[in-house]
Nucleic acid binder design. Sequence first.
DNA 1: ATGGTTGTGGAACAA
Length: 269
Amino acid sequence: MQLSVTSWNINSVRLRIDLVLRFLAEAKPDVLCLQETKCPDDAFPLKALRGSGYEHVVFAGQKGYNGVAILSRFPLHTRDVMGFCERQDARHISAVLGPEAGKAAGIVLHDFYVPAGGDVPDVNLNPKFAHKLGFLDELRAWGGRRVSGPAILVGDLNVAPLEHDVWSHKQLLDVVSHTPVETERLETLRGEAGWIDAARHLTPEPEKIYTWWSYRAADWSATNKGRRLDHAWVSPDLKDTVRRVEVARHARGWERPSDHAPVTLTLDL
DNA sequence: ATGGTTGTGGAACAA
């Protein structure tokens, strides 16, 4: 069987619920992991998902900022939420696929939204950058201990780790998301925990891969100044099941889009 | 070098 899991920073799930439904109808992933839902739990648009085929939903939200959610065709068990940096920010949720998922049963899904880190890449001048690095340090401490058994980690990690994950390595070396202190941290924590970067496993450098294009560009598609901020990682035991990683770039061109495109990982189990 | 846009919520902040 195949299992497909999409990660998408939706930048307000309430504003863009119609885009969520459109994507689900078109791409039909088994699981959709959202970030930046910007939605308190009591306002999550569950009614709109009725009849969509994605009735199994877990979420962790807050008012105004952050927020993560997992929508699934299959029942989900053991919803769990981790806190980082002694904040109650809604930046992680995990769940386990139930027996109905067949060969995918028991796979743990982790959905992360790493802090963006502000504009200035200096921990002394910018508390948001310090928060981001602290979050990555805690992710490192967690990842090394907890990854055992089949698991998938997706999300907006807000770091483009490799040279060809950005439109210009040289021009972005001092831009938050691609500074060496961030990219080295992310690659180190990923490697230590044994996670496989599924997109780069299938498509090594120097091919460019982007998942995000700024709203601020006059013509995002023509200028194509993208970055690969959204990731899909698998645990070592799933490495050889990775079949595809697809960026739904066209969704970035939909009306009133998110600035992130959906990224879909497909496994052959 | 700067400023460019979007969302929440109804100003200021986050991205």
